[in-house]
Measured scan of single mutants.
Amino acid sequence: EVYKVKIKIERVLPNGEKVEEEITIEVEGMSEEELLALARELAAEPGVRIKEIEIEKLPP
């Protein structure tokens, strides 16, 4: 199964400015739980906050 994972994050820059970013990846052969863990890892940097995680199962 192939999933499209869209992660919206908010990053706080050293000057205090907040910037929103969106990361989209396609992943194959992982469960939804593994995808959530991967998304959290991607956003685990200091000053980064996850705003939204969207997981979509793509048709075969």
Rank of each mutant, 00 (worst) to 15 (best):
I7D: 00
E20Y: 15
E20F: 06
R11W: 06
I53V: 08
E33H: 13
I53Q: 01
V48H: 02
R11A: 01
G16M: 04
M30F: 10
E17K: 10
V48I: 11
V2H: 15
A39P: 01
L35C: 05
T24Y: 09
E34P: 03
P59Y: 12
E33F: 12
R11K: 10
I50P: 00
P59A: 12
P46F: 14
L13Q: 04
E28N: 12
E33S: 13
P59S: 15
P60E: 08
R49V: 10
I55Q: 01
L35N: 01
S31K: 11
E32S: 12
E10A: 02
E26G: 05
E10C: 04
L38T: 07
E52M: 11
L58E: 05
V2G: 11
A44L: 12
A37F: 15
Y3E: 04
L58Y: 12
G29Y: 06
A43N: 08
K4R: 10
I7C: 01
I55Y: 07
A44D: 06
V12M: 06
K4M: 07
S31I: 08
I53G: 00
M30W: 13
R49Q: 11
G47D: 09
E45F: 13
R49T: 06
A44N: 12
I55L: 10
V5W: 02
I23F: 07
E32P: 14
A43Y: 11
K51A: 06
E20G: 03
R40P: 01
K8Y: 12
L58C: 04
K6N: 09
K4H: 11
V5K: 00
A43M: 14
K8L: 08
E21L: 14
P60D: 09
A37M: 09
P59L: 11
E52F: 13
E45G: 13
K51I: 13
A43R: 04
A43W: 07
A43T: 13
V27S: 06
G16I: 00
K51F: 07
K18T: 13
L13G: 09
I7P: 00
E28M: 11
T24C: 05
E20H: 12
V12F: 08
E45N: 09
A39L: 12
K18S: 10
E52V: 12
R11H: 02
K57H: 05
I50T: 01
G29L: 03
V27P: 01
L38V: 07
K57P: 06
K8A: 03
A44I: 09
E45L: 15
L36T: 06
N15Y: 03
T24E: 10
E45C: 09
K6M: 06
P60R: 06
G47N: 09
P60V: 13
G29M: 07
K6I: 14
R11Q: 01
N15T: 12
K51W: 09
I50K: 00
R40C: 03
E26H: 08
V2T: 11
I23L: 07
E22Q: 13
E52T: 14
L36I: 10
I9G: 00
K51S: 07
E28R: 01
K51C: 04
I25V: 07
I25N: 01
N15H: 03
L36V: 12
I25R: 04
K6L: 13
R49G: 03
K4I: 07
G29N: 12
E17R: 11
V2K: 15
E21R: 09
P14E: 15
E22C: 07
E1R: 04
E52A: 12
G29R: 05
E54D: 09
E20W: 09
E52R: 14
P46Y: 11
A44V: 12
P59Q: 11
V12H: 07
A44K: 15
K4S: 05
T24S: 06
V48S: 05
E22K: 04
E28T: 14
E1K: 04
V27Y: 08
M30Q: 08
L42Q: 04
I53A: 01
Y3F: 08
A37K: 11
G16A: 02
E22V: 10
P14R: 04
E33M: 10
E17M: 12
G16N: 03
E21W: 15
L42I: 11
E20M: 09
E21F: 12
P59E: 10
A39M: 15
A43I: 14
P46S: 12
E1I: 08
E20L: 10
V2S: 10
L13E: 02
L38R: 09
R11P: 00
E45I: 14
E33Q: 13
L35M: 13
V19S: 05
E20A: 03
L58Q: 06
L36H: 09
A43Q: 06
K8P: 00
L38H: 07
A44E: 05
R11M: 02
I7V: 08
A44H: 09
E28Q: 07
I25Q: 02
L35P: 02
E56Q: 15
K18Y: 14
K4V: 07
G47E: 06
E56S: 13
K6H: 06
P46V: 14
E32C: 04
G29P: 06
K57Q: 10
I25H: 02
E20D: 11
M30D: 04
E41D: 14
V5P: 00
K18W: 14
I50G: 00
E21K: 03
K8V: 10
L58P: 11
E45V: 09
E54Q: 06
P59N: 13
E1F: 04
A39F: 09
P59M: 14
P60Y: 00
E21I: 13
E20N: 08
A37H: 15
I53N: 00
P59K: 14
E54I: 15
V48K: 02
I9L: 08
V48G: 04
G29D: 07
E21T: 08
R11T: 02
E28K: 05
L38S: 03
I50A: 01
K4G: 03
L36Q: 08
L42A: 06
E22G: 02
P14Y: 02
N15G: 11
L42D: 00
P14V: 05
P14C: 06
V27H: 05
R11G: 00
I7A: 01
I25G: 01
E10I: 13
I25S: 02
I50M: 02
G47Y: 01
V19Y: 08
E54L: 15
I9E: 00
I25A: 02
G47H: 11
E34I: 15
V48P: 00
K51E: 03
E26Q: 12
R49W: 04
V19R: 10
T24L: 11
I9K: 01
P59T: 15
E26L: 12
A44P: 05
P46W: 12
K8Q: 03
V48W: 05
G16S: 02
K51N: 06
E21A: 10
E33Y: 08
P14K: 06
Y3I: 14
L13M: 09
E21G: 07
V27I: 14
E1G: 10
V12N: 10
P46A: 12
E22T: 12
E45Q: 14
E45W: 14
I9D: 00
E52Q: 12
K18R: 11
N15E: 03
E34G: 12
R40T: 12
E56M: 12
E21Y: 15
M30E: 06
I53L: 04
V48Y: 09
M30R: 04
E34N: 11
E54F: 12
T24K: 09
E41N: 14
E52N: 13
E21Q: 13
L38C: 04
K8D: 01
K18A: 11
I23G: 00
I23R: 03
L36W: 08
V27N: 03
I7L: 04
E28D: 09
K6W: 07
L42P: 01
E56K: 12
L38A: 03
E54H: 14
G47V: 02
K18D: 02
L13Y: 12
I7W: 01
E10H: 04
L36M: 10
E34F: 14
E56C: 05
K57T: 05
E22Y: 11
E1D: 10
R11N: 01
E33W: 13
E20R: 05
K4P: 03
V27C: 04
A39H: 03
E26P: 01
E22A: 05
I7H: 00
G16V: 00
V12T: 13
G47A: 07
V12E: 13
K57L: 13
P14A: 12
V19N: 04
R11E: 00
N15P: 01
T24R: 03
V2P: 05
E34K: 13
K8T: 14
R40G: 11
T24F: 13
I23Y: 12
L58A: 09
G29A: 13
G47W: 01
E32N: 15
V48E: 01
E28P: 08
E33G: 06
L36E: 07
E10F: 04
